[in-house]
């Protein structure tokens, strides 16, 4: 299914989550990179050396969750925009996710947008709680979204707003 549609299925992404204890103990990175490709920027991006690819550049990145503090620095470094950070303890009933964003408009902090799943379908409202667009992110913004706890590992994008060119 992933190979024929580009949409990761539950069994695919569940395998990328840390164990339940780690999930409850603070924000963690989720690297949705499922295929052996010659690529390794994520490895060099993490200041805490939590991501390893190693000698063979085709290896799938491996996360040592004990080293990951959920800072989100790696998100904008991945050319595949395949890295997310999930915080299940954000506030009661809600979690926070960090997603990469390279479209216009850039959502504004405080606005409520539609959170969409891996298939682009709307799932739930998501409040924009953070917008990072530092120079070293090189035009890949990182958006922080507050979403209902049930959706922290389902929402992976937001609905494109704004005018389309050429209309």
């Amino acid at each position: 299914m992933l190979k024929s549609s580009g949409i990761a299925q539950k069994s695919d992404w569940e395998a990328k989550l840390p164990d339940v204890n780690r999930r409850k103990s603070g924000p963690y990175v989720v690297i949705e990179c499922y295929q052996k490709i010659p690529c390794n920027p994520c490895e060099g991006a993490c200041p805490n050396k939590a991501v390893t690819i190693g000698e063979d550049i085709n290896t799938i990145p491996c996360v040592e969750y004990g080293r990951c503090n959920g800072c989100g620095i790696c998100i904008s470094r991945c050319p595949g925009l395949a890295i997310f950070v999930v915080d299940e303890g954000f506030c009661p009933g809600f979690g926070k996710i960090l997603i990469p964003w390279e479209y216009l408009p850039l959502p504004t902090k405080g606005s409520v947008v539609a959170g969409v799943g891996r298939d682009g379908k709307e799932l739930c409202p998501a409040e924009v709680v953070e917008v990072r667009i530092a120079k070293n992110q090189d035009r890949t913004a990182v958006i922080g979204l507050k979403v209902p706890l049930d959706f922290v590992n389902q929402v992976r994008g937001i609905k494109l707003g704004g005018e389309e060119n050429g209309r």
Partner: peptide
């Protein structure tokens, strides 16, 4: 073809923007 030839991370980026990728 029955499968996507591109790196899947790229394909997923498109899928979550709601663009259908129709193999076969």
């Amino acid at each position: 073809a029955p499968n996507i030839g591109a790196y899947l991370v790229h394909a997923s980026k498109l899928a979550r923007a709601g663009v259908p990728i129709l193999t076969r």
